[in-house]
Amino acid sequence: MENWQNMMKTGNAFFEQCAWFDAQFYYQNAISHIETIWPSDPYNIQLLQGWICGMHNLSALFEIQGDLRSALNYLKIPHEHMFSLAQDGNQTESMQLIALKALKITLNPLLEFSQKHPICAPCLKSLQETEDFVYSSQPIIH
């Protein structure tokens, strides 16, 4: 079985060749593979980053094809998941901190997308509230 990193690289190669169907196939398989192994190692930052990257790659793929709904969806999935983890009081402090840091990775592409393509007012307001949450949750050094 091919590992998720190789699947992602193969997807990137197909993306560069504008072979959208093949790129999508490899990105989705990489994500599926990560989602299979991640539960047994939930603090693995490499898996987290790979998963977010795969989702963002799918977003770019759909955006370039003009499927803006799907593009936005693939940006929202990791963002909403990280936001949920960051606010979940049942999570360990370490997991909440990981999720908070990951929100910085997921938030900027959403904000950039919203500048290029109009999104609904409630979604935009939610992004602004998330931005406030992310940056107000930073530890203050005295």
Rank of each mutant, 00 (worst) to 15 (best):
L61I: 09
K104I: 11
Q49G: 04
Q115G: 02
P118G: 07
I140N: 12
I37Q: 02
L47H: 13
M7L: 15
G66V: 11
N12Y: 04
H79Y: 11
I105G: 00
N57G: 04
A23S: 12
F25C: 02
A19R: 06
F133V: 05
H79T: 09
M95H: 10
D22Y: 01
K116T: 04
I119R: 03
S70W: 08
N12L: 12
A99K: 03
A30D: 03
T36L: 15
L48A: 11
E93L: 11
H56T: 03
Y27R: 09
S84R: 10
T36R: 15
D22M: 04
Q46Y: 08
L47R: 05
I52C: 02
N73E: 13
A102P: 07
K125P: 00
S70Q: 15
Q17T: 10
L103E: 11
Q138G: 05
S84G: 01
C53K: 14
K76H: 11
H117T: 09
I52D: 02
L110H: 06
E112N: 13
Q5D: 08
Q87G: 00
C53S: 14
I45N: 12
E16T: 07
L61F: 08
D41C: 09
P42Y: 05
M8A: 12
P139C: 10
A60V: 06
H56V: 02
D88Y: 07
G66E: 07
Y74W: 14
E80G: 02
L107P: 03
A60D: 10
S137N: 15
H142G: 05
Q128N: 12
G54C: 02
N73C: 10
E63M: 10
I64M: 14
S126K: 11
H81R: 13
P118N: 08
L124I: 02
M95T: 05
A60E: 09
L75H: 01
C18Q: 13
N108S: 11
M55S: 14
N12G: 04
G50V: 09
T92E: 06
Y135V: 05
G66R: 07
A121F: 06
Y135G: 01
E2V: 01
K104P: 00
L85K: 01
I31C: 07
E93T: 10
H117D: 00
A99I: 06
D22L: 10
I52N: 01
W4M: 08
D88G: 07
S94R: 13
P118S: 09
F15R: 12
P109L: 03
I119W: 07
D88I: 05
I64E: 15
T36Q: 15
H81Q: 12
I141W: 08
E129M: 07
K9L: 14
N12T: 07
L110V: 03
V134N: 08
I77G: 00
G11F: 05
Y74G: 06
F83S: 09
Y74I: 09
F21P: 00
G11W: 04
H79V: 04
E129I: 09
L75T: 04
E80T: 06
Q138F: 10
Q128A: 07
K76Y: 13
K125C: 08
S136L: 11
L97N: 12
I141V: 08
E131K: 15
A30Y: 02
P139M: 13
T106K: 03
S114I: 01
P118K: 12
S94P: 00
P122Q: 11
I34Y: 06
L61D: 01
L75N: 00
E16S: 09
L47W: 03
S136Y: 10
Q138A: 11
P118R: 10
P118I: 07
L111T: 05
L85N: 01
P139L: 14
D132E: 14
